[in-house]
């Protein structure tokens, strides 16, 4: 069985967001990590490797420095790594990103493609389902559990909704988007880290993408365009009091609630 996991290098928003003196985000100062949902997807793939001897390939699209997350994935146990990087691919929205990744995936054999549900920088959750559409394969989003039946060439997924879950069965090949809740990703092993830096990362550029028109790539191939982007402006500050006693605090709150006709 062959599994391809699509991963993304993202700035770590959890580990403290850094701002420049002018109040804009300092992306360069933030730690670059493997996107958490993608890491859960990788762990799911590695469990299929443990269970069935699946071959696990990780693929990322990004700047050359995204090599770091591929090395991390190799150190966790992935077998092969592919970096898709090219200047003409920059500025891509989710349509152009998914067209690019689909173009790369067409070069590979796969039974299962796993992506994270969403990346913590964009939070769109769009690229996974869009890749599946470009490839014409089924998608199951929001996976909490994945069970593969290798003989029957099917996969059964616990698919989360707001107030329920579905157990959904699909034919392979299939694309699954993974939730962080899926599992607890393993750590890199010291041996794995050592080997990861020995292994070769395949680098693909525009010319290596299969069956994709230039009009679907990069900034020019992006249907959506940014009209305006800004770091968030904070709401004006209200009142703040430091009462001497709980009673005084209560007087203050109840006074405000009466003023606003809530009580």
């Amino acid at each position: 069985m062959k599994v391809v996991v699509c991963i993304k290098q993202v700035p770590d928003t959890k580990g403290g967001v850094k701002f420049k003196p002018d109040g804009t985000l300092d992306r360069g100062a933030m730690l670059a990590i493997m996107n958490p949902d993608d890491k859960a997807g990788l762990e799911a793939a590695l469990r299929l490797k443990d269970q069935y001897g699946a071959e696990v390939t990780v693929l990322t699209m990004g700047l050359p420095k995204a090599d770091a997350v591929l090395r991390e994935a190799l150190a966790m146990g992935a077998d092969k790594a592919i970096l898709v990087t090219d200047r003409v691919l920059g500025g891509a929205d989710t349509w152009a990103t998914s067209s690019t990744i689909a173009g790369a995936l067409r070069n590979l054999e796969y039974d299962l493609i796993i992506t994270g549900r969403q990346a913590i920088d964009g939070d769109t959750a769009q690229v996974g389902p869009q890749i599946s559409e470009h490839l014409g394969i089924p998608v199951i989003s929001y996976a909490e559990e994945i069970k593969v039946d290798e003989a029957a060439k099917t996969v059964e997924v616990k698919r989360q909704f707001e107030d329920r879950y579905h157990i959904v069965k699909a034919k392979l090949p299939c694309l699954i988007t993974a939730l962080s809740e899926l599992n607890e990703p393993r750590y890199m092993t010291p041996g794995g880290i050592f080997d990861a830096f020995e292994k070769e990362v395949t680098v693909w550029g525009r010319a290596d993408l299969k069956d994709v028109d230039d009009s679907n790539l990069g900034l020019k191939g992006s249907p959506t365009q940014i009209a305006k982007a800004s770091d968030k402006v904070k709401k004006g500050q209200g009142e703040k009091v430091a009462p001497d006693s709980p009673e005084e605090a209560v007087d203050y709150i109840v006074g405000k609630l009466k003023e606003k006709h809530i009580v």
Partner: peptide, 8 residues
């Protein structure tokens, strides 16, 4: 970006 930026 986790609510840190806003884009139109």
């Amino acid at each position: 970006f986790g609510g840190n930026t806003i884009a139109t």
